[in-house]
Design a protein around this nucleic acid. Sequence first.
DNA 1: CGGTTATTTTGACAGTGTCAAGATTGAAAT
DNA 2: ATTTCAATCTTGACACTGTCAAAATAACCG
Lengths: 201, 201
Amino acid sequence: MTQTGRYHHGDLHDTLLQEANTLLSEQGVEGLSLRKLAERAGVSRTAPYHHFRDKNALLCALATQAFQQLDEMINRQLHQAGSQEGIQDFVREYLRFATENPEQYELMFGRTIWKSGEPTDELKTIAYRSFRHYAERLATLLAGRLPARTDSLRVAQASWATVHGLCRLLIDGIYVNREDIETVSEQSIALIMAALSQPSA
Amino acid sequence: MTQTGRYHHGDLHDTLLQEANTLLSEQGVEGLSLRKLAERAGVSRTAPYHHFRDKNALLCALATQAFQQLDEMINRQLHQAGSQEGIQDFVREYLRFATENPEQYELMFGRTIWKSGEPTDELKTIAYRSFRHYAERLATLLAGRLPARTDSLRVAQASWATVHGLCRLLIDGIYVNREDIETVSEQSIALIMAALSQPSA
DNA sequence: CGGTTATTTTGACAGTGTCAAGATTGAAAT
DNA sequence: ATTTCAATCTTGACACTGTCAAAATAACCG
């Protein structure tokens, strides 16, 4: 078995992934072309096609990588923490992840893959798992504090949507001020947590 | 003055806009090419360039149109209504707008224009005005109910981000169930409103 | 009518993703 | 070691895309 045995190039598969990621960071999805990528890797235009069926497949691989990072972050961050501060810290980390890797974030959640293209099974799995982890950990943190008739899954969906919406507005270039985003998210969390410490619905 | 005087085609400018909008609805942004558009309008490939400087300019014009609709909806919907129910109705309308015109919504808030391209001044104006209208009306509805140290602008930003995030998840094809989205948004509004009826922060 | 300007067309160029067919090379089989 | 075979890479080609330059056409204005 040739687990590390390489042919002509050596390790085109990983080289492509790596180079694609830096090219993504530098120029965004719209600047990421297979031909540019091949040139950077020092191979011909169609060489990548023996390692990725599609451009879509390559993008899915990139997004999968990024989701693995995000998933690790979620598990690390929400592992054990006091509810209010823990959540605040998590959101800060989430915002950091999104703003430091805007192009990756865009790829992870953007229509390029999910609507125009076709998400890989692998990608779907890790994406849904990430959210599930988030929902589970959040449910643990909020255990007993939720008012009646309030599903913790719904809270997870709503809170993710809020942070995701903020990230999107920032990343897409509609909002520019990153500090504002942080303030907004902190205040909305405080608001929700305040609501959760009350009995009525 | 030739305000309605037409040359060869008759009224290419409006025809292009109209045809572009239907093409956008049918095939999405990635299916909207100037050449296809020109063919549909019955003109040559480069004819549109005398009515729109760029593809970007055309897209901005489309987005501007859509923002005008959205702005009208905001002003109509949030004009006068009891706070809780009024907001719920508004959100339902917003979700309806986004899900019935997904491609337009994507164009309005997507990176195609705001990041990759360059938003027109006209577009920026109407976009920011729409949000300002929303924030103003919302501030009126919530007047006196906000706890101390809670800026109404922040609430407006947070609530928009939430609904926008939900729309994005739905439109980008990550969430599929529209009913879920509605449930989530309703419950998060209920939660926030519950928080707002309490004195402490 | 002549001239100016707005409008449209044809031709061209660089760039894209991707398929088909051939060339090269590593590894396994005899 | 030589053959066989499959993996890997290359060249060529096709249909697209946005956009520029220059030529052609047609409307308007004096």
